[in-house]
């Protein structure tokens, strides 16, 4: 399941809802991305996340479907916010649930790595030098690339 929203989310409540009434889930792995107050050497006052409505939902759904194809997940959830956010604010939640922990750990890592390079979001940071668009990181491409080959765990 995926959601794109301006509003904040409550990770505890989201995880509880994901597993409610289920008896087949052995574990849930969650990742919560937050706004950091530093980018390189610049202090960040706030950031604005722009996205491409329509494509964002389609790409996140495709990434979520791919995770469910590769790993035996009992449930999965991706929430991504957009709009103006301040340091400490939550940006993204990835939660994966499965009967056994390995699938949940691997799928959560896959989801966050892939959405960083495929979901159409762009960050505009407010720094003392003025507003600056965040540049894509080569390290994110490398992190995503290792998932291009189907891992053994998914066979």
């Amino acid at each position: 399941m995926i959601r794109v929203q301006r509003e904040d989310f409550d990770p505890g409540r989201e995880i509880a809802r994901l597993t409610e009434g289920r008896r087949d889930i052995g574990g849930v792995v969650s990742f919560v991305g937050l706004v950091r107050d530093m980018a390189g050497d610049a202090k960040i006052g706030a950031m604005t996340l722009e996205h491409y409505p329509g494509m964002t939902e389609k790409q996140l759904a495709a990434i979520d479907a791919e995770a469910n194809r590769r790993w035996p997940l009992a449930a999965s959830l991706v929430i991504h916010r957009y709009g103006r956010l301040e340091p400490g604010d939550r940006i993204v939640l990835v939660a994966t649930a499965s009967p056994h922990r390995d699938a949940a750990f691997d799928a959560s890592r896959f989801l966050i790595d892939w959405l960083k390079t495929r979901a159409p979001f762009w960050k505009l940071e407010e720094t003392p030098r003025g507003a600056e668009w965040v540049e894509a990181k080569a390290s994110d491409d490398i992190a995503a690339a290792r998932w291009r080959k189907k891992p053994d765990a998914a066979e």
Partner: peptide, 10 residues
Amino acid sequence: VALFPPVTGG
């Protein structure tokens, strides 16, 4: 058609 820079979400 949409044209944009490399994405920076997550």
